[in-house]
């Protein structure tokens, strides 16, 4: 067997319930379950393996794959980025150790529209023609590892995702003098503390906790390991980011109002408070957010300067 592609997800809901999801689910479930795996023969030397129940590497699923794939020469492993994040490094190490004679490629994927691994995989599962070529496209997509700067870009995008809408809403409110109907719509959009909760989520993306998903801190540490001579420069850029959104404690003095503004955004009766804070301090949220973006851009540029850290 030349190539095997394996998808693993620590959740029974492998497929979304909308779009192509139900069809994919039906096709996959039409294949019998063998020791936790569903195997789809693509051609004589290509096989797609899918695992979509809780993964316990020490148990029989692992033994089964070890025994069955003894002679594999190329192995492509795609792990769902969210649900498998806790186990991803352990699984990668196990695969590399067990199949040391084979070429092993490990990558993560998400089910967002446009994700190459997910897109080609979805096409392959339902395809009746050109299956070999689709299979090779999945393998190619898994092969393409993200660089450190690409990983940082993804995290920066997620942080921006959290704050860009708030930034537009606050600017829009200021523009209209906090018009009541506008305020009502904004309160509805951020009810239940969603806006201030975004600070916690952003901290998670910067620092996370050990063993969980990718974080800016992990990327910085990897970059320094790859280019120890540039530790000072990378750390300087990283400290700038940290100073704007510390791991523990409050935001810096200049932006102390930001947290309160975010907290008040979902409260109907706080219109005057937010208005005054934005007026007195010339929209401190926007100033803070612009600085945070700039600091993340500078960190990315610090990583880009060193050829090896980009990989």
């Amino acid at each position: 067997m030349k190539i095997v592609v394996i998808f693993i997800r620590e959740n029974t809901e492998l497929f979304p319930t909308s779009g192509q999801g139900p069809q994919l689910s039906q096709v996959v479930q039409s294949y019998p379950l063998q020791n936790g795996w569903r195997r789809i023969q693509i051609s004589q030397d290509r096989e797609l393996w899918i695992h979509h129940v809780e993964w316990k590497p020490e148990q029989q699923e692992w033994q089964y794959i070890r025994d069955t794939l003894k002679s594999v020469s190329e192995l492509y492993v795609a792990l769902h980025s969210t649900t498998m994040s806790r186990l991803s490094s352990q699984i990668e190490t196990e695969f590399r150790k067990t199949f040391s004679e084979a070429q092993v490629f490990v990558n993560t994927f998400s089910r967002v529209e446009g994700n190459d691994i997910w897109r080609h995989f979805s096409d392959l599962v339902v395809a009746v023609q050109n299956r070999e070529s689709l299979f090779d496209q999945v393998a190619e997509a898994i092969k393409k590892k993200l660089t450190l700067t690409q990983r940082l870009s993804i995290l920066k995008h997620r942080i921006a995702h959290l704050f860009l809408p708030i930034d537009v809403d606050l600017q829009g409110l200021i523009e209209t003098g906090f018009r009541q109907d506008y305020w009502n719509e904004v309160v509805e959009a951020y009810r239940d503390g969603r806006a201030v909760g975004n600070l916690t989520q952003a901290r998670q993306l910067l620092y996370g906790t050990e063993g969980e998903e990718d974080t800016v801190e992990k990327i910085v540490n990897e970059a320094i390991r790859q280019a120890p001579t540039r530790e000072g420069e990378i750390n300087e850029a990283w400290q700038q980011v940290q100073s704007l959104l510390p791991k523990n404690g409050s935001l810096p003095c200049d932006y102390r109002d930001v947290e309160q503004i975010l907290r008040d955004l979902g409260c109907q009766n706080k219109r005057e408070d937010v208005k005054n804070k934005c007026k007195d301090r010339n929209n401190p949220f926007h100033q803070w957010f612009v600085k945070l973006n700039k600091a993340l851009d500078e960190l990315r540029e610090a990583l880009l300067k060193e050829g090896s850290t980009g990989t």
Partner: peptide
Amino acid sequence: DIVEYLHALQRA
């Protein structure tokens, strides 16, 4: 691609 951003721009 950020739907919340689209809605915020729509409001603004």
